[in-house]
Design a binder for these strands. Structure first.
Lengths: 335, 335
DNA sequence: TCCGGTTATCGAACCGGTTCGATTTTTATC
DNA sequence: GATAAAAATCGAACCGGTTCGATAACCGGA
């Protein structure tokens, strides 16, 4: 590998001039610039990003840390961030914490050790320690998906209260009253907001919520399956189930199919968040989806703004909350 | 941030001794080791990975480059690699090329600029130029998924010929003769092998393949949808469709549903590769799946072997080809 | 021609570690 | 107690860049 000293020798200038010429061509005379360019081409010089980062104290990389890259929710976000970053000569490094707090911490710290220019983080936890940890990170960053109380950073996400409320209202309009809710872990902002959307919409419609109809699905497939089973074996079954996320709702669908219930004939079902291939799932689930493309765009723009504008660090953190979209299916029937 | 010089000063030893003590505690006297450890703790010293990588010429990071991290196929592989790497104090950086050759090249080169210790690569292209590119990478590496002719590197993947043959044989046993095949891009090894498995199994069963029954689905959802439509509008329709991957098969299912065909009543369907939530798709698709967990384990072990065994570079590249598994569904009927 | 003010280039220090040959200290042997 | 061998420690060079104050070259104006 050719180094900057090789270039300097060949162009017969000092190393510092080469460095200057490469990072700021305007401040070097036309003649030397050309000599340097020729030399660069001749030896095939490419700056070592590692050495650059060490010397500059910052690299051209952006870290994207999520709990599960396989989640299609992250697909658009990743793509948008990558494309936008690339336009600004930055690279995106993805790190997957598998939802584990300790691993997330290790990954983030490692990335920061790499002197990443910025960080897009989907928080995996909450609480004072976690808040302190995130706020201790001295890097331009944008949080997304999960709003964590106390973290004073830019946040990009969807209106989860609205998401829960929309589907609840939809079921109410179809005449349902015995509506069950498979909830997520309440310490998660998304989960508690969706729950709140459900409860308050029911309340303002004057419909009592049977406590047995609210079960915890942990946002996971397995817990959602159990929770759904618990709903389905009750003597007075709900006429509709609202899954707080895709995993618990589809687990409920699976449970219904296994027990022989027809959806929507026996029980209606709807959910928050899409999955891949949802349109070949029978019945097509009525859902409310997040505008992942737009979310990704905002995350990317905001993060790169903070990165490239030197005094953006002073700008106060801002929340960007997008309304979700209603996508009708045929999994909910009028009663 | 505390540097190694701070530690040296506090422990009253030279910088080189600190460095030695930290990387090779056995070669330092007990007394100084303790003094150094105390000093490290006192100033909260953590070695700068960037500086380490620059000095050593190699980092503790492993690159994982794939065409689409969202593909569940990569889920297990990523997880296995991450876990195994972590046990050996390595970190995995994921980079997504979105299937674009140019971006893959840029990402790989950037990662190598970062002096990654090893690379797990799912090749996205083929041909002499590509082979030359991959072979020019002077990094311990393991290729997986797509076997590229000419690349002399470790390879881990599934027996795609067998995958195609198994499903073909299954359909033949059920009495099907008019079997259609939605193929992938033939320059891809996986696609051509699956195709070969289909064709040769048909041939050895003495069944002619109607040329109109073999259509190109490019392994993508949209092309697969078109291809399926082309099959379904033929006057003499096939009685079964074999999708060369999950995307084209499910696109075919969608097409069938939209046109009003019943699966498996009117047409049977089976596919290679699983998708998430396949068990809530109606009908449950009969398929052949890869043992992604085992694939991931082999990739991880092989790569870390090459990384940590200094003279493993001399070991000739090896192919690891696993047999896929048959997973019966109810999308194929006897005729 | 001389001078003040730009503009171009350079040298040296630095980023934060590693490595290796040289030097000093310790230990074992006679 | 002298001496060779082994163990511990050190200094300096190096990895490959950036940055900044200092010097040198250049320019127009008096």
């Amino acid at each position: 590998m050719a180094t900057i000293r090789d270039v300097a020798r060949l162009a017969e200038v000092s190393v510092s001039t080469v460095s200057l010429a490469l990072s700021n061509p305007g401040r070097v005379s036309q003649k030397t610039l050309e000599r340097i360019r020729t030399a660069v081409a001749a030896v095939g010089y490419v700056a070592d990003p590692l050495a650059q980062s060490l010397a500059r104290g910052r690299s051209k990389m952006i870290g994207l840390v999520v709990g599960n890259v396989g989640n299609p929710f992250f697909g658009d976000i990743r793509r948008e961030l990558e494309n936008y970053a690339l336009e600004h000569e930055h690279f995106v490094l993805i790190a997957d914490s598998s939802g584990k707090l300790e691993r997330e911490r290790a990954l983030v710290e490692h990335l920061i050790g790499l002197k990443i220019a910025g960080l897009a983080l989907a928080p995996s936890s909450f609480g004072p320690d976690y808040v302190k940890f995130v706020e201790s990170l001295k890097v331009p960053m944008v949080c997304f998906d999960q709003k964590v109380a106390g973290i004073e950073r830019d946040f990009v996400g969807s209106d989860n209260y609205l998401a829960g409320a929309m589907l609840t209202e939809h079921l109410l309009q179809l005449g349902h009253r015995r509506i069950a809710f498979i909830a997520g872990p309440q310490h998660m902002h998304t989960a508690s907001e969706r729950y709140r959307g459900f409860m308050e919409t029911m309340a303002s419609a004057g419909v009592d919520v049977n406590p047995n109809y609210v079960v915890d699905g942990q946002f996971t497939r397995s817990a959602g399956y159990e929770a759904a089973m618990r709903l389905l074996i009750q003597p007075e079954r709900p006429t509709a189930i609202l899954g707080a996320n895709n995993a618990v709702a589809l687990a409920a669908l699976q449970a219904m199919q296994e027990l022989g219930f027809d959806c929507p004939g026996d029980i209606s079902l709807c959910m928050i968040d899409d999955v891949q291939w949802s349109n070949v799932i029978t019945p097509r689930i009525t859902m409310v989806v997040q505008d992942t493309l737009k979310l990704g765009g905002i995350i990317a723009r905001r993060l790169l703004h903070r990165i490239s504008t030197p005094d953006a660090a002073a700008e106060p953190p801002q929340d960007f909350v997008l309304a979700p979209k209603f996508v009708p299916g045929n999994s909910c029937r009028r009663v």
